[in-house]
Structures are given as C-alpha cells and as structure tokens.
C-alpha cells in the first residue's frame, strides 16, 4: 500500500511476475515493447519473401511441401506477434503503416537475395538457427502476450532449422557441383547471420534497460558467440568451411574467436541500401494495396449477412 504505480511495476519485474495488458506499465516499457514486437512481426512477414521465391522451383514434391509449410508458419508467427503488439494499444493498420512507410524496421537479413536452391538450406540452418537463439530466451520475457506468442513460435521453429540443415546435408553429400552450391550459400549467409544479433554490446545503449525489464535476456554479443560456437561444430558435420579465416578455437575462453564483422555493411542495409530492400518493401506494399478490394468485399459481405439475419429473426 502507498506504493506508487512505478514501484509496483518494478516490484513485479523483480519478482519475475508477468506483466499483462491491463496492468499499469511505464510509457517507455510500452513503447519499447511495441517497437521490439512489431519489428519482430514485420521480420516474419517480410521473411516469407526470400523463401517464397523458391516454392515453385523446389527440386521435389517433398521439398516443396516442406518449404510451403515453413513459409506458412512464418505467416503464423507474424500474426501471433502482431496480435501481441495490439494488446499494447496499437492497431494492426498502424503497424502495417509503419512497415510500409519505412518507419518500422525488420531484420536486415531479408534484404539479401536467394540466388540458388542451396539458399533455402542456408536460410533454414543459419537464419532460423540465429532466430531461434534470439527467441528462446524470450519465451520467459516479462510481457505475457509476447512470452506466450514466443512459446508458440519457438515450438514451430525447430523444424525450420532442421529442414534447412537437411538440405545442406543432402547437397554437401551430393555431387561436386551440389557441394559447391552449398558452400557458396554458406559463404553468402554466414556474415549477415552473425549481424542478425544486432550491433556490438558497446554500441547498443538500450541493452541494460531491456535486460532489466526482461524483454531481452542475453546481450547481442553473448548470443552471437553462442551461435558461432554451435554453428561451427555443425559445419564440420556438413564438411563445409566457415568462411572466416580468423575463426579459431580459444582454449582459454572456451569459445571460438572469430573475425570482425563488417558493420558498415550492416548499417548500410539497415538504412535501406541492401540488395533487396526496395524489392521487399514494394512486394509488401503491392500485396497490401492490391488486397484492399478483397478486404472491403469481405467486410461488405459480412455486413450484408448480418443485416439479412437480423431481418429474418
């Protein structure tokens, strides 16, 4: 009693009690969550495009069914997350608007092109792999609707990574040309995957606050290191080479040391100058605009049905 709203909120955070939509929360917490959740949702939605590019060209019916199911899952992930964001008081239309106008960001990895079928393997293995590493800790995040959405997402992600690894395995055990395709895809997706964890800790000023709020549970560099350690071992199973000359086991640290990341490239892609930024956003906007008549028609139909039912009653 006599506790201020802020104190009450802080106490809940400290006691690991979940914050729910109707609980009081500081404005910054709400804003940060909306930004983080919507950015994540947009990434799931935009993330369907590079893989969607290969559905009709999958090499077998099995691969096609799998890729289709994976891309459909990503749509689902986007939808879980959009509705989690909406519980914070922002509308779906506003969220879309922020994406379409470039006000909101999505993961810059999806601004790279998918040039060969091997890219489907590399994306599943590396991009979904990095996403899982980022997302698993968020299943215990402080905001209830976000945490529950993440539990669903994580449950579905593991097949995404495994199907990607399976594609890489098949290619790397195949003909010389197939193995070369796999290595080439690995070379192109490795560094952008490391960038998925975000800028180095020294340059992410909000990390401390976010860790305190439990909307981030590990720092960017911690997760990146873990990804390098795990993935390097997996590459050995594939018989592929990690495209980093500086990669070396460091006995003392108990981790792999790795080469420096080209952060200029990262920021350049974030700013909109990646190979596919324009293409991705245009595809999204076109789909939204061309779908307007369908949304209107569905609404008109629903209203007509309702009116008819009211008359009959």
């Amino acid at each position: 009693m006599g506790q201020s709203l802020q104190e009450h909120f802080d106490a809940m955070i400290d006691k690991d009690i979940t914050i729910e939509p109707k609980d009081w929360m500081p404005d910054d917490y709400r804003k940060t969550l909306i930004r983080q959740i919507s950015q994540h949702a947009h990434s799931e939605i935009i993330g369907m495009l590079p893989e969607g590019n290969w559905i009709t060209r999958a090499p077998s019916l099995r691969r096609k069914s799998v890729l289709l199911a994976k891309v459909q899952d990503e749509a689902g992930h986007g939808l879980y997350l959009y509705s989690a964001a909406e519980t914070l008081g922002i509308s779906r239309d506003e969220l879309y608007d922020q994406l379409h106008t470039g006000k909101a960001k999505y993961s810059s990895i999806f601004n790279y092109p998918t040039l060969t079928w091997a890219d489907m393997g590399a994306i599943g293995w590396l991009v979904d792999g990095a996403a899982i590493m980022n997302q698993v800790p968020l299943c215990r995040t402080s905001y209830g609707p976000y945490a529950r959405a993440m539990v669903r997402v994580c449950k579905e992600e593991s097949f995404h990574q495994r199907q990607g690894f399976e594609i890489m395995l098949t290619l790397s055990k195949g003909t010389a040309v197939q193995k070369k395709l796999a290595q080439d895809a690995f070379n192109r997706w490795w560094w952008p995957s490391l960038m998925m964890f975000g800028p180095p800790d020294a340059e992410s000023p909000h990390t401390e606050q976010s860790v305190r709020w439990r909307i981030k549970r590990f720092t960017n560099d911690e997760l990146r290191q873990k990804f390098v350690d795990v993935t390097t071992e997996q590459a050995k199973v594939l018989g592929l080479e990690v495209p980093d000359k500086d990669l070396k086991w460091n006995e003392e640290r108990g981790h792999y040391d790795f080469g420096s990341i080209n952060w200029d490239e990262f920021w350049n892609v974030v700013k909109g100058n990646g190979p596919c930024n324009k293409q991705r956003l245009d595809a999204r906007k076109t789909a939204w605009e061309k779908g307007q008549w369908v949304r209107d028609a569905a609404m008109a139909h629903a209203e007509k049905r309702k009116a008819k039912a009211a008359k009959a009653a």
């Binding site: 709400r30 008081g89 922002i90 509308s91 239309d93 307007q292 209107d296 569905a298 609404m299």
Partner: peptide, 10 residues
C-alpha cells in the same frame, strides 16, 4: 494509449 481503429480494419 487510445486505439485508433481505421474503418477498413476487420
């Protein structure tokens, strides 16, 4: 924060 519901939104 008030929810701004556009007319077109389902």
């Amino acid at each position: 924060m008030e929810k701004e519901m556009k007319k077109s939104e389902w």
